[in-house]
Design a protein around this nucleic acid. Structure first.
Lengths: 243, 243
DNA sequence: TCAAAAGTGTTTAGTCTACACCCATGA
DNA sequence: TCATGGGTGTAGACTAAACACTTTTGA
């Protein structure tokens, strides 16, 4: 993961080979303990928290760059990824955190350094199976960890509003597109799926209605019963099957 | 409109003062004669047709840049504008049209000229009142005209698929957001609105159902009757009122 | 046999579809 | 008074909400 070739932000990073003024930020959502979580990075020797992000190589597709960022932080290939908005106000980009980060890592950047310019950022969100993720920092980061949405540290720049916009998009697309399954393990119970929906939409749903609505979509396959050892009827396990 | 300060693409254009590798393309939709139309430009002394587009000034908000492009081509301020997708594949950008355009205008660009680099393009769509628009070319263009969606010339690069994606987004948002009104004049009849919906969605709708659905939204104000001189009941004029 | 959670049935209310009907208008 | 298009009424079909009931599980 910390292979030198894949490190995208180094304090000695000059920006050569990358498109200037353009960044990618990826909101990586996971679901665990009935909570929706996002992956956040903390820069070395600072209190700056940020979304996983990166830049676009001169010869790289946009989606490939986003996938690369997701891979670097989660260890997962083949992640569900979707572009959702571009953040391009002039005043969104404040160079002072980056200047401070570089100084904390003993680098003195020029005033016109690649990283201190204005950046326009393309927002992607990723939906991943929490249990399969290995949160992975690299040289520039003290940590890479999951945070509950309502227990996040302050983030640099407009990253908090990027997360909010991502969540808004996720909510809107949850119903017409069938993307929720990407947040669960391969096999799951109807209760787990309902939990996920309730968490994302932040409201209670009626169990019978939910069960019928989801099954009526005809995209779930009933696998087997899941005996948890608890003293109640064992729920069925389902698996997503696309046609 | 052809004030030198606002010309964004000139054959002598060096790119100075603009963000490199990043463009904006605006799909400007109008509605006329029961047809949905888009505004297209034709480059001087070539057969290259393209979407209205432009670049982002170093100190300009993304939305402002899109609004500027729309203003330059339509003469309208305060246009309904929405960002819908970023087109960022490496192979989407083919420099040969731009090289040919510059040569047709007696300019010989370097191989590493601003305009011949890879571009990532941020797609916006605009909904305008057809009757208020003055299609406006500038020095670089022979023409700026409305085209019906199914009678468009071949477009450079991936502009055709940008239009398709814009149309897709427009269809999807027509129902939940109430953006269709932007394509009509201030006062309109229910029949005109239904025509618009039928054209965009490309299917017939039932008149009674449509009337009730729209009125149930509670966002229309009934103004007066519109006497057209035809031998039938005069329809009401409505006006959009936001709460 | 009991509590808890899963799954299914059923009644009701609400919404949508399709068609019918009535209204206003100018020839 | 007739044809035309606009507006509303309404029966039936379909769908969703709310609640009840049954089933399965381990203690």
């Amino acid at each position: 993961m910390t292979d030198k070739k894949t490190i995208k932000v180094e304090t000695t990073f000059s920006g050569a080979g990358y498109i200037p003024n353009l960044a990618i930020d990826v909101v990586i959502f996971g679901f665990h303990d009935k909570q929706l979580k996002v992956l956040l990075m903390k820069y070395n020797r600072t209190e700056f928290y940020a979304l996983p992000g990166g830049f676009i190589k001169n010869n790289e597709n946009l989606d490939t760059a986003a996938m690369r960022v997701a891979l670097e932080r989660t260890g997962l290939t083949d992640v569900f990824l979707e572009q959702f908005y571009v953040f391009g106000d002039i005043n969104r980009y404040d160079p002072t955190p980056f200047a401070a980060i570089m100084e904390a890592n003993d680098t003195k950047p020029d005033k016109d350094h690649f990283l201190l310019q204005r950046f326009i950022s393309i927002g992607y969100f990723a939906l991943v199976d929490f249990t399969k993720v290995t949160p992975t920092p690299d040289k520039l980061f003290d940590s890479c960890n999951w945070y509950e949405l309502n227990a996040m540290p302050a983030l640099i720049q407009d990253h908090t509003s990027i997360i909010n916009k991502a969540l808004e998009t996720l909510r809107a697309k949850l119903d017409d597109k069938l993307i929720g399954f990407n947040l669960l393990e391969e096999n799951f119970t109807m209760g787990e799926l309902q939990n996920l929906y309730e968490t994302i939409l932040d409201k209670k749903l009626l169990r019978p209605a939910f069960q019928r609505k989801i099954l009526a979509l005809g995209i779930l396959e009933r696998i087997a019963k899941k005996y948890s050892g608890a003293a109640h009827k064992a729920p069925y396990l389902y698996r997503f099957v696309s046609k």
